[in-house]
Write a protein that binds this DNA or RNA. Structure first.
Lengths: 222, 222
DNA sequence: TCACTCTGGCTTACAACGTAAGGAGACGTC
DNA sequence: GACGTCTCCTTACGTTGTAAGCCAGAGTGA
């Protein structure tokens, strides 16, 4: 009758929370494609079908995972100091969100494929709109700003070229004269970079500032 | 001995070209998730395994599909008039690419998930860099521009919110004050819009021009 | 002409996936 | 004690990508 005691080897009961956190852990370690119902179950010492008592189906699980990550982002950005002019405030918010996503590199792709919106993602944008409005944006301009920023608002940009294979301009065929010229010149300017010929963080900030500067100009109407 | 005659009901032989075109047709009609090896085979009157004589595996098939669509884009943009100042030239190129992608709405998502780069996509960017360089960009700035534009260079932006469900601001909970305020105001400004409260083409152009204007300012150093 | 290899199709089979269906044991409430 | 209800398990099915191997026709060299 002593079943209530916390035996050390005893299994914790499942919960939606534990299921989602386990899925995130698997994705962090082995990539999002390693997140299968059976694998998540295994990791929890349970069967795949047991998960269905806590998530409706795999789609729901992935929605929950996205929401969890977005919640992590919100935790971080809510702690930032948001006083002062809007531009550094918004800039810091977005770069902080980016830092979280760099810890979950699979998350951007997952976010992009989700059909329904995560409450936490919506919440993130609500606060962002609030900051823009406080900074002098009309709601109309804030609305445009959301679309203009797109995924960049959450801290990631669509990386069409997989980083890591662009380093060698020699592999490019000669019928691409402009790319060859560009790559040789850029590589020459920065010969010893271990980050390859382009540093993602720098590029992200370049594009972000381009947008933020443009928005500020639209706001002041100059 | 008359086996060479083109019997009407006779099946064309398979080819990589036919396989890829069929996959595109299926994706156009039923979505990218309907593109399975068996389905493509069926559509061609062949078995799934027969496709493997023309594509290495499904990944290769999808790579080929992306390349085919990018080739379609290149066909269109190569036919554009590229004389005059860089900004309208590049703008027209990107908007034309967008028109092609609107005929293959599944393509952006597929593009974003491909690991290897399509030669046609690379070619597209080569010509784009050429246009920027001709327009007075240093290769360094052109390189930054590619990253800043990201997927927008190819004519699509990451649509985080699925269009079609954002129309009703009434569904939003009250703990999202800024979004509620924004949506009610924007919806009020444009009450009769059948496109929902945001028109994608307009928003895309807004963001694109923000970037192009910013790039021009960086180029002239003002 | 014969035997050979290639090419491109088909058949069969398998492992991994998501998940439907239902059963077993622990728990609370009447 | 009977009865839900909750949680977890077992079994099984359909769908997916694809490995392995068979077979017919077309060249091709002896």
């Amino acid at each position: 009758m002593v079943t209530a005691e916390p035996v050390p080897g005893e299994r914790l009961p499942l919960s939606r929370e534990r299921v989602l956190r386990t899925a995130v852990a698997i994705a962090d370690e082995h990539g999002i494609e390693a997140v299968t119902m059976r694998r998540v179950g295994d990791e929890l010492g349970a069967e795949a079908m047991s998960l269905y008592h806590h998530v409706a189906n795999k789609n729901d699980l992935l929605d929950g995972v996205v929401d969890l990550v977005a919640g992590e982002i919100n935790e971080v950005v809510d702690a930032l100091d948001a006083t002062g002019p809007w531009q550094p405030v918004v800039r810091a918010r977005i770069l902080a969100a980016r830092q979280v996503l760099l810890r979950h590199r699979w998350a951007p792709r997952l976010l992009a494929t989700r059909a329904s919106l995560s409450p936490q993602v919506v919440r993130y944008h609500d606060r962002l709109v609030g900051q823009l409005h406080d900074g002098g944006f009309s709601f109309d301009l804030a609305h445009h700003a959301l679309h203009a920023l797109g995924s960049r608002a959450l801290g990631f940009s669509q990386e069409l070229f997989d980083p890591g294979d662009g380093g060698s301009a020699g592999a490019l065929p000669p019928e691409l004269p402009s790319l060859v010229a560009m790559l040789t010149e850029v590589a020459h300017d920065d010969p010893g970079s271990t980050l390859g010929w382009c540093d993602d963080q720098t590029e992200f900030e370049f594009g972000l500032d381009l947008l933020l500067d443009g928005l500020e100009r639209r706001r002041t109407g100059s």
